[in-house]
Amino acid sequence: MSVRGLVKRYGRTTAVDGLDLDLPAASVLALLGPNGAGKTTTVDVCTGFARADAGEVRVLGVDPAGAPDALRARIGVLPQGGGAYPGVHAREMLRVVAACAAHPLDVGWLSGVLGLDACGRTPYKRLSGGQQQRLALACAVVGRPELVFLDEPTAGMDPQGRRLVWDLISALRRDGVAVLLTTHLMEEAEALADDVVIVDHGRVVAHGSPAVLTAGEQQELRFRARAGMDLDGLRTALPEGYGAAEPIAGRYLVQGRIDPSVLSVITSWCAEQGALADDVQVARRSLEDVFLELTGRELRT
């Protein structure tokens, strides 16, 4: 799948503003961003439920506009919030969706492994959010698609359900399925995606593997020591471009690439001050930090 310069407007609001995406087979691409960033709109255009105002979109080599039957037969979609008849039993619904595919997975097996058997004869509208979500996920994969769109697949799920979904997505990737995942959960993107595209206000603000996005110079080291030590000596001792601060009394923070020589500078400075550095932690940036840094806003707002 590839997207170049996608623009989608609703009235005077521009929901997606020049987005580029690439998703090869057997890989997971996470669209990460806060609510209203344009993630769902992007999925809607790629699945043919909305028309692009500008840009080129190719899904399995086809223009998805108008959602042609031949394309829909090859993809699986988990629309945001799922979808089923209000009075239907989970298994009945899965059977209807399975009937739309030529070689569906075994409905009994899939509903068992996704914990849908526990839903029994409860109508869809009375299922919990997590159960509805697991049904939606089952519906998205039951047709053995080549490409799966999962819009917020773990929304409303407990940690156990989330673990199950993560396992499922890993298994899809392993078996050669391409997965486009939208999420506002950092852990999800970090744990699952080969590639993360961070979007905000319909634009790509960062793009790369989770490791690349969070690695590089932007490391930091935190430690505890006696409060109120003079940091000037440390700043002089550290190489160019490093920062040192005491954001909270007794908690120190050194920013920059932390390697053994930098570590030894820090410990010897502490020794000179007659202090012992305690609880030393070297942390990589999380995607959360990346987002905060790029947009000046928290992701979960």
Partner: peptide, 9 residues
């Protein structure tokens, strides 16, 4: 398990 085998019913 999930090896693609798409097609319309």
């Amino acid at each position: 398990t999930f090896t693609p085998r798409p097609g319309a019913g």
